[in-house]
Design a binder for these strands. Structure first.
Length: 453
RNA sequence: GGCGACGUAGCCAAGUGGCAAGGCGGGGGUCUGCAAAACCCUUAUUCACCGGUUCGAAUCCGGUCGUCGCCUCCA
């Protein structure tokens, strides 16, 4: 039985989903390139999905693009391009990042700008039911009308008002009322609506899209912990108010936030590293292992050193998975079953990837010891690769040298071999050091010399 | 001010009542012309601090100190 920690109940619950599993993960607002905090979140939910699929569930995964909002408009104006052009370019970049991180695509990626009429209908419905009101071309959700408001983030409206430090428009009935529809300023992208020209507020799109593509009750609703309030709280209010059905989501899953060098990484402070930058330094396997080495609900701190350590770890797994067998004792087989059981037990317990990774490393060690004892390891190696795959690790060697250079390198290795046979150690070492200076490392093994970049 | 999370070896990080997973790094070894790589072995009598409950606590309770997040745009 898989157990899942539900942010709303603040406890682990038995995972009893519908079939297929309906999984909605909050996507990005497309106003700048994705950073490594996004990478963490999407690696986490990709791994959860991969594991569910491994365990035989079929998963329907929907993830939105919020491709119209204040910041997109502001950045588009600054860059002097249409908002749509900016958003579309960033969506292309998003997919490139996801592919590079070996993150499976969602089944559906709805965009706000293509869902406007559904959103308008949802807002209309909320007004009709008395949960929302129009005010000077804007439409607001009436938080006082929804009795469960605050049940996800565990706070009351009174607390929010007392502690609130934000600025408020004075055309709202209650300071915590939030916009479902915003009137357009001159020059903004705009759509016709019963309340005049404007565009959707921030939270409504997720309610609309999840209702449309997955129905009234989601199994898993995921996102970063920073979305708990107000975004997910507001989604619950809108969705449950509209459908009259609770819960909107059976399991609320929130990943811990990625810290960058001691500080929270946030778009507003510009304190961030993009996925592209991280991938120029590290392999996707290293970045994934970095994320999956701790529990998904804990915050993690990105530092170069931390990820470098993970690169080494990946190397160790890769080595064990692909080392050539020299088995002579065909009867003696390395048994991977105990590790399989550990892996599954760990992942069943709220996707404890840290423990699952530990099982992988122990399996790697078992394989290495088996190799030394000349045992059969191919089955265990296959298992290692399979479980690495469940975590989205490719265990592939990174090729970063241009193909043209390879014959040249091999020629030098051949030349050096001659020098070594002639015991011309100094000249042989010169060749090796020269290549090292160019970033190519030679490794002399009993079977011959290999190289890597 | 309100709400919440966390503090485990040099670093990262699991474990939430019964002898402290795993990775990186360090140390020792195997291999090797040397080196590198790889592999093996090893590396916390102790879990921020103080008190309590218990036969037994990193794990439960109370307190202290410290770090961080949310309450405003965020994955």
């Amino acid at each position: 039985m898989i157990k899942v920690y539900n942010s709303q109940s603040q406890s682990k619950e038995d995972f009893l989903p519908s079939d297929p599993v309906k999984m909605y993960v909050c996507g990005v607002t497309t106003y700048s390139d994705c950073h490594i905090g996004h990478a963490m979140s999407y690696i986490v939910f990709d791994t959860i999905r991969r594991y569910l699929e491994y365990r035989g569930y079929s998963v329907k995964h929907v993830q939105n693009f919020t491709d119209i909002d204040d910041k997109i408009i502001a950045n588009a104006n600054r860059l002097n391009v249409p908002a749509k052009e900016l958003a579309d370019g960033l969506i292309d970049n998003f997919f490139a990042d996801m592919d590079a991180l070996n993150i499976q695509h969602a089944h559906i990626y709805p965009k706000v700008t293509e869902e406007i009429s559904d959103i308008i209908n949802l807002v209309k419905g909320l007004i009709d039911k008395g949960y929302a009101y129009q005010s000077e071309g804007d439409v607001y959700f009436r938080v006082n009308s929804f009795t469960g408001y605050g049940k996800l983030s565990h706070r009351s409206l009174d607390e929010m008002v007392t502690g609130d430090q934000g600025q408020h428009l004075d055309n709202k009935e209650h300071p915590m009322d939030f916009a479902l529809w915003k009137s357009a300023k001159p020059g903004d992208p705009e759509w016709d609506s019963p309340w005049g020209k404007g565009r959707p507020g921030w939270h409504i799109e997720c309610s609309s899209m999840s209702l449309k593509y997955l129905g009234e009750t989601l199994d898993i609703h995921g996102g970063g912990q920073d979305l708990v309030f107000p975004h997910h709280e507001n989604e619950i209010a809108q969705s449950e108010a509209y459908t009259g059905k609770a819960p909107f989501a059976k399991y609320w899953m929130h990943n811990g936030l990625l810290q960058f060098e001691k500080e929270k990484m946030s778009k507003s402070t510009g304190n961030l590293i993009t996925i592209k930058e991280a991938l120029s330094l590290f392999s996707s396997d290293a970045l994934r292992l970095f994320v999956l080495s701790s529990h998904y609900r804990s915050p993690i701190t990105y530092t170069k050193d931390n990820v470098v350590a993970m690169s080494r770890g990946v190397q160790r797994l890769r080595q064990a998975a692909f080392s050539e067998s020299n088995a002579t004792e065909s009867d003696n087989i390395v048994d991977g079953e105990p590790f399989k059981n550990r892996f599954i037990e760990a992942m069943d317990d709220d996707f404890n990837t840290a423990q699952a990774v530990a099982a992988l490393f122990d399996l790697a060690k078992e394989i290495n010891k088996g190799q030394k004892a000349k045992m059969q390891v191919s089955k265990a190696q296959k298992m290692l690769t399979e479980f690495a795959g469940v975590l989205g690790l490719t265990l592939k060697e990174e090729e970063s040298i241009s193909l043209d250079a390879i014959p040249l390198i091999e020629l030098l290795i051949e030349t050096r071999k001659g020098l070594r046979t002639a015991k011309q150690w100094e000249l042989a070492d010169n060749v090796r050091n020269g290549l090292l200076a160019l970033g190519i490392t030679l490794e002399d093994k009993p079977s011959g010399t290999t190289w890597k970049a």
